[in-house]
Structure formats: C-alpha cells, structure tokens
Simulated assay, not measured.
Amino acid sequence: MRIPEITETTARPLGHCPVGTRGVLHAVRAAGTRRRRLAELGFVPGAAVEVIGRGASGLVIGVNDDARVAIDRAGAEELWVVDRA
C-alpha cells in the first residue's frame, strides 16, 4: 500500500474546518511564545484534533481525545491540519 504524501494543498488551517472535522495536526505556523503556548496545550504536529464547536470569538477543539481547548480565530489560522481518512 502506498502512503499518500502530505502537501500544502492537502493541509488547511483549522479555522477553515467545519464542526465535526477530524484531522491530524500537520504544522504550527506560530512563533515564539505563542508557539510554545500552543504546544503546552497539546497542539504539536501529529496530534489528533477535532472541531467540536464554534463560537463568536473562536473554536472549541478536541486534542488527542483527552482534552478540550478553546482557541481564538487567530490561533486556529496558525494550526494546519490534514483530514483523517
């Protein structure tokens, strides 16, 4: 079986994903303190994520099936995911 290559065209910002989307975090496009804070919350490449809900100021995300995190829209745009097959 051939494993598909992940490219920039298959990855998309988490902020563009509808509620119910499950995926794998491909890249974190934040820098410095913000990148470190996202990593502390579990947002590291390879983490399983699911969009659980949307609010006026951001998203509620499930991370690795054991945490729920609220993140603002800017943060959601810095997290790039690939849909889980």
Rank of each mutant, 00 (worst) to 15 (best):
A48M: 05
T7G: 14
S57V: 14
A56D: 14
P13V: 01
T21V: 03
E40W: 09
I3M: 10
I71V: 14
N64P: 01
T21D: 02
L79T: 11
V60P: 00
D72R: 10
G42M: 03
A67F: 05
V82E: 10
P4M: 08
H26F: 11
R34Q: 10
V28D: 02
R73N: 13
G42E: 05
A30Q: 06
E40C: 08
G55E: 11
A67Q: 12
R12T: 04
I6W: 08
L79A: 12
I71G: 03
A67N: 09
I6T: 09
C17I: 04
V69S: 04
T33K: 11
P45Q: 10
V60N: 06
L38M: 07
F43K: 00
I61Q: 00
A47H: 01
P4W: 07
A74E: 15
M1Y: 07
A48V: 04
P18S: 06
I61P: 01
R35D: 06
V28I: 05
P18A: 06
A76Y: 02
W80T: 03
R35S: 11
I6F: 09
A31F: 12
P18I: 04
V82Q: 12
N64V: 01
V28W: 02
S57P: 03
V63M: 00
A56F: 07
I6G: 04
L59H: 02
C17M: 07
G20Q: 01
E77A: 15
G46E: 07
V63K: 00
R36T: 12
V19I: 13
G75K: 10
G46V: 09
P4H: 09
M1D: 05
R84Q: 15
R37S: 10
H16M: 09
W80A: 03
I52D: 15
I61Y: 00
A70D: 14
I6C: 06
C17E: 05
P45Y: 06
R84S: 15
L59Q: 04
G20C: 01
R34W: 09
V69P: 02
F43S: 00
D65Y: 11
G58Q: 04
R37F: 11
A48T: 07
R34T: 09
G46H: 06
V49C: 02
T33Y: 09
L41H: 08
S57F: 11
G55F: 15
V82K: 07
T7W: 09
C17H: 03
H26I: 07
E5C: 07
G32E: 04
A48K: 05
E77F: 12
G15H: 04
G20Y: 01
R84G: 14
A31C: 04
P45T: 08
L79D: 09
A47P: 03
A85M: 15
R2C: 07
I61S: 00
T21P: 01
H26R: 08
L79P: 06
G58W: 01
L25C: 02
D65R: 14
V63W: 00
G32N: 08
V81N: 00
D66G: 14
G75T: 10
P45N: 08
A48N: 05
I61T: 02
E77D: 15
R68K: 14
A47Y: 01
